[in-house]
Simulated scan of single mutants.
Amino acid sequence: MQAVSPTTTGVAHLARPGRPAVVARTLAELGGPTRGVVELPVRLMWCPDRAFDLADPDQLLWLYENVLREASNPDDLRRLVNGRMLRRVWRLLNLPRGVRLAWETRHRCLRSA
């Protein structure tokens, strides 16, 4: 899976100043888990408690918010985010404007999700 970059879209949406948002080319490529406990690597979350129980809706949202905001490569997205689940929870996610715009620009189905 390759990330959508400013050179392929013509537009750079930033996750935060100086960091472009990483976006999957297709939602079908996102085969992350939908149950169980997921532990994020330190590079995606710096606090000591990095484990998320996907059965808890709040923890699922928090996991996705962190991954979508902090991902620096498409492998993070493919491994940690599930495309069908992302579509279900999209409107509930608290994301930086640049991240939301990047994903909705690439995946128009998320705008109406």
Rank of each mutant, 00 (worst) to 15 (best):
M1Y: 05
A3W: 13
A3I: 00
V4M: 12
V4G: 01
V4T: 10
P6C: 03
P6I: 04
T7E: 14
T7G: 08
T9V: 06
T9L: 14
G10D: 13
V11M: 11
V11W: 06
A12E: 14
A12M: 12
H13V: 08
H13L: 11
L14T: 07
L14S: 13
A15E: 06
R16G: 08
G18A: 02
G18T: 02
R19F: 11
R19E: 12
R19K: 10
V22G: 05
V22C: 13
V23R: 02
R25H: 09
R25N: 10
T26K: 03
L27C: 12
A28Y: 05
A28M: 07
E29Y: 00
L30Q: 05
G31R: 08
G31L: 02
G32V: 01
T34C: 04
T34L: 02
T34M: 11
V38M: 07
V38A: 01
V38F: 01
E39I: 00
E39T: 14
L40R: 01
L40K: 03
P41R: 00
P41V: 00
V42W: 14
R43Y: 12
R43T: 10
L44F: 04
L44A: 06
L44G: 04
M45V: 15
W46P: 03
W46Y: 12
P48K: 07
P48R: 07
D49V: 09
R50Q: 02
A51V: 00
D53L: 00
L54I: 05
A55L: 14
A55W: 14
P57G: 09
D58T: 06
L60D: 10
L61W: 08
W62S: 10
L63V: 02
L63D: 08
Y64T: 03
Y64S: 05
E65P: 04
E65T: 00
N66V: 10
L68R: 01
R69A: 12
R69M: 12
A71Y: 02
A71Q: 08
S72Q: 14
N73Y: 08
P74G: 05
P74S: 09
D76S: 06
D76N: 02
D76T: 00
D76L: 07
R78M: 12
R78D: 15
R78L: 11
R78W: 10
L80E: 10
L80H: 06
V81R: 03
V81H: 13
N82D: 15
N82V: 00
G83M: 07
R84G: 15
R84W: 11
L86I: 03
L86F: 08
L86P: 12
R87W: 10
R88Y: 11
R88S: 12
W90L: 03
W90V: 01
W90S: 07
L92H: 13
L92G: 00
L93K: 00
L93N: 07
L95H: 04
R97A: 14
R97P: 06
G98W: 11
G98A: 09
V99G: 04
V99T: 00
V99S: 01
R100V: 00
R100Y: 03
L101D: 13
A102H: 06
A102I: 07
A102Q: 07
E104P: 09
E104S: 04
T105D: 15
R106F: 06
R106S: 11
H107L: 06
H107K: 08
C109D: 15
C109A: 15
C109H: 05
L110P: 12
R111G: 15
S112N: 11
A113F: 13
A113W: 13
